[in-house]
Simulated scan of single mutants.
Amino acid sequence: MVIGLIVSGGKGLRMGTEVPKQFLPVHGVPILVRTLMAFDEVDSLEALVLVLGRDFIEYFNGLGYTPAKPLYIVEAGEERFSSVRNGLEKAYELDPESAVLIHDGVRPLVSKKIIEDGIAYTRKYGAAACSVALKDTVKSVGKDGFSTGTLERNNYRLIQTPQCFFTKEILSGHKRIQEIDNQVTDDTAVYEAFYGSVYLYEGSYENLKVTTPEDLLLAEAILANREIESCK
């Protein structure tokens, strides 16, 4: 089984709105619903697990969105780390031999190709995550605020989601990390700590994480452009 694990347990405080950012509309559709729709359209995915804060489960159900694939809602933890683990526990319950694609609920513009590539590369390499090249020069900086050097940007990538693994491995990694109190915020780091390297495949600059009002405007523009391109 291949499972899409959508993590949406945050409160979205940086957006500065009363409604959590995952429920804000982008081009007329709530961000979280757009994210779920993107995964629901991938034929090789067989189930969706959605991690939500307890206070927002009823709100989500009130939106009236019902995907074609089975959807399992799991209560979020206090931190993203524990929220992911809760979702992984459910994925393991559904199928211990499953592959799981862990994705931010506020990345609604992920393409079908990125999701399908994640599945394919996980089957080939054991773990994979989409990423993009750095556009800007990256400087290291000292505590005094002065630059201390320039990094070779060709040696670095910006990691996005989905981050894709076999469920039993990444769940085991999460349990082991927690035992040594290493509260990492990225699931590839969990995998690397115990199993080895993660294959980084090509993502997209359009696969942005909607965190600020500026991100929301950019997402609106991207969707508007997609509509124009689809009509040509």
Rank of each mutant, 00 (worst) to 15 (best):
A120R: 13
G87I: 05
F23E: 05
I159N: 02
T150H: 10
S44M: 00
P108I: 01
E89H: 14
P25V: 03
C164A: 12
R14A: 03
E46Y: 02
E192Y: 08
N155K: 13
K168C: 08
G105D: 00
Y195M: 09
P213Y: 03
F56A: 08
I115L: 11
R14E: 08
I222K: 05
T66G: 04
F23R: 01
P25H: 03
N155Y: 12
E227F: 11
A128I: 02
V74D: 06
Q160I: 04
Y199D: 08
V7R: 06
A193T: 14
V29L: 12
V84R: 03
G16T: 06
T17S: 14
M37Y: 06
E220I: 02
Y201S: 09
G53K: 07
Y191E: 06
P108A: 00
R14P: 05
K11Y: 02
V2S: 06
S82R: 08
A99Y: 07
L48N: 06
Y92Q: 05
L13G: 03
Y195I: 06
A128Y: 07
D186M: 10
A189Y: 08
E89F: 12
Y65E: 07
L71N: 05
E93Q: 15
E179D: 13
T161H: 01
E152W: 14
Y201P: 07
L45D: 02
T185M: 15
V51K: 05
D144A: 14
A219Q: 04
L71Y: 02
V100K: 06
A91E: 06
Y205I: 10
